[in-house]
């Protein structure tokens, strides 16, 4: 009845093809779209529960932070407040979207243990909830930024129309990242703590609070190896520079997002059956 062994082998059984797995996962998650919607709404409302302004804090919160920061910085460094604000926050907002969803997303399966053990819920449900929550939150912040820019008299260009496409790429990217980190954390619980301490440092490797041009020429190629640089740069081009990004920038970002999602799904497929026993 009981056997004690060391280093168990993973046995494979009735393995579906990857395409079939992806199709099935997406179909299952689609069946739970209302639950995803309910969970995202609840997550967002939970923050502002019992406050008089309620949901408007979602807009007001980032608005106040941005105003404070840009006023302080422009006073200290005597820079042009309007372009400085827009420049900083076009980089900062997508970065916080990525890093917040990485930290929170790494916990997505571990924290759902009580659900996974009692209900049959498609595994993709949990990453989708994380991505939904943070993307909607990001939309609020982005709206605040556009409003502030307008008040400061920043000229918004037609390139803003490309924003939904950029956001879609970002959502795909963080979905893949969340699945990947979420599965990894089930097996290695320290991961979310490691992310918590390394991501703030990682922040400085991306030209967000400094312009890319300020990096010495000989080091610049190293900075270009940073995968998140390209996605954040899309925002900078579309919002700040007001230009349509060149095709190779799109290609790199989209390829990166798709690779990450595919990697996430492959890892999920391999561990889907075993995960529940590791909770």
């Amino acid at each position: 009845m009981i056997t004690s062994i060391s280093l168990p082998k993973v046995e494979k059984k009735n393995d579906p093809s990857l395409a079939k797995f992806i199709f099935r996962s997406i179909r299952d998650a689609w069946d739970y779209r209302w639950a995803i919607e309910t969970f995202v709404t609840n997550n967002l409302c939970r923050r502002y529960r019992r406050s008089a302004l309620g949901f408007y804090w979602g807009l007001l919160g980032p608005l106040m932070t941005m105003i404070t920061l840009s006023v302080v910085f422009s006073m200290i460094f005597h820079i042009d407040i309007k372009s400085f604000t827009v420049y900083i926050f076009t980089g900062l907002l997508p970065w916080s979207l990525i890093s917040d969803s990485a930290i929170e997303g790494s916990q997505c399966f571990v924290s759902a243990e009580s659900y996974l053990k009692k209900l049959f819920i498609p595994k993709l449900f949990f990453p989708f909830v994380i991505v939904g929550t943070y993307t909607v939150n990001f939309l609020f912040s982005l709206t605040s930024l556009l409003l502030i820019g307008m008040v400061l008299g920043f000229q918004w260009k037609l390139s803003l129309l490309l924003l939904p496409a950029v956001i879609a790429v970002t959502a795909t990217l963080i979905l893949g990242m969340t699945i990947l980190l979420g599965v990894a954390t089930v097996y290695f619980r320290d991961l979310s703590h490691i992310l918590g301490v390394t991501l703030p440092g990682f922040f400085y490797t991306i030209p967000i609070i400094y312009p890319a041009e300020s990096i010495p020429e000989q080091f610049r190629q190293w900075f270009l190896l940073n995968p998140f640089y390209y996605v954040i740069d899309l925002y900078r081009q579309v919002i700040f520079k007001g230009q349509s990004p060149p095709i190779q920038d799109w290609a790199v970002s989209i390829a990166l997002a798709c690779c990450l999602l595919l990697a996430g799904l492959v890892v999920l497929k391999r561990n889907e059956q075993d995960m529940i026993y590791r909770m």
Partner: peptide, 14 residues
């Protein structure tokens, strides 16, 4: 609210 939360979690639509 929990009726909706729980119901949708059982894959019922809104």
């Amino acid at each position: 609210q929990n009726i909706y939360l729980n119901g949708t979690l059982l894959a019922h639509s809104r």
